[in-house]
Amino acid sequence: MKLLVLPFGDAACASTHYRVLQYLDMLKKDGIDCEVLAPGEMPAPAVIAESDTVLVQKKLFPAHQVRTLRKHAKRLLFDIDDATWHPHGRKHSWWTRWRTNRRLQSIVRAADVSLVANLYIAGHLNALGGKTQVLPMALKAEDWPRSESTQAVRIRLGWSGAPVNLCYLEALEPVLAQVMGKHPEVELAVFCGKQPAFSTSLPYLHLPWRQGGEPDAVKTFHIGLLPLPTDAFSQGKSPIKALQYMAAGIPTIATPQAGSVEIGQGADCMFFAENPQQWSERLCQLIQDNELRGKMGTNARAAFEERFSSTQTYSRWKSFLLGT
């Protein structure tokens, strides 16, 4: 079998890495040949036709290019892990909204199957006439060691993320200052390529970002922080940091957006907080209760291994590629 991938980004793009590239070694072991094109590249019709399956990973091509893909592809899949039809950080013009919606509708109707990261995205694509299957985000379990002991003298609150998302952590500053003032045994660690711009002298340990350094950083956390904005785009996110915290076996406190709630559902490993008071209460509860942290951490790792390990999701991913 030959798989042709039209990716959204390169190897440094988290979406492309977690939705496609991390599975390539497994495909190779199963004798499946995979060619990954450059981001945005549209192959010639002959290249499309000689592939058994074409996978479009989140990229929204113009409708005429989608028609070309559909005409020549034996099997066409679309994969998406974000609510890209909603603006992210800036408003969309009417033209951008129209173009985005037209391109999205074009690919989801043309695809044999759309693979989506969560039920929120599935609902939207189904309404557009798509045929969806939920394939959750995943991580390689062997890359993620368990967190340090929950009985540590210093209790570390941890946040891991990209510089563009630091504003969500910075919005928690008043809560963090209050909680850390009550509990001198607590420290804050930030794994990021940029330091947070707190308005006060809130103490924190900056763990400089490095490629592949997430497991080493997150395993030093005892409580994972996952604040998100309450906007439409974030409703469709399946935050990879939620899975990182779960893989490390630590409890998480998160904003209750749809994708995050779906990840934590039934696992008893995640608290949700909608306002500063709830954030403060949940933080204090976990800080003061070593046993609860340990129990939730054990639940987190178990849920991760059962539902979000790449070895668990790969077999389903391959079956969608093969159409079996």
Rank of each mutant, 00 (worst) to 15 (best):
residue 38 A to M: 05
residue 50 E to V: 15
residue 33 D to C: 03
residue 44 A to G: 00
residue 27 L to C: 13
residue 39 P to W: 02
residue 45 P to D: 09
residue 43 P to M: 11
residue 41 E to K: 09
residue 63 A to I: 10
residue 37 L to Y: 00
residue 35 E to D: 03
residue 32 I to R: 14
residue 51 S to I: 11
residue 56 V to D: 04
residue 48 I to S: 11
residue 32 I to P: 13
residue 68 T to Y: 00
residue 49 A to H: 03
residue 30 D to G: 06
residue 65 Q to F: 07
residue 45 P to V: 12
residue 70 R to S: 12
residue 32 I to A: 13
residue 47 V to Y: 07
residue 50 E to C: 15
residue 29 K to F: 02
residue 64 H to Q: 14
residue 55 L to D: 03
residue 31 G to E: 10
residue 65 Q to A: 10
residue 69 L to H: 08
residue 42 M to F: 15
residue 29 K to E: 08
residue 36 V to I: 10
residue 34 C to A: 14
residue 34 C to P: 01
residue 63 A to G: 03
residue 45 P to C: 11
residue 38 A to L: 03
residue 41 E to A: 10
residue 55 L to C: 04
residue 55 L to N: 05
residue 71 K to F: 12
residue 26 M to P: 01
residue 40 G to S: 13
residue 56 V to R: 06
residue 69 L to I: 00
residue 61 F to S: 07
residue 35 E to L: 12
residue 29 K to A: 10
residue 36 V to H: 06
residue 70 R to Q: 14
residue 49 A to G: 02
residue 58 K to N: 13
residue 61 F to H: 04
residue 48 I to Q: 08
residue 31 G to S: 12
residue 50 E to R: 15
residue 35 E to F: 06
residue 34 C to T: 06
residue 46 A to S: 07
residue 35 E to Q: 11
residue 53 T to F: 00
residue 32 I to E: 13
residue 27 L to Y: 13
residue 49 A to F: 06
residue 36 V to G: 00
residue 41 E to T: 10
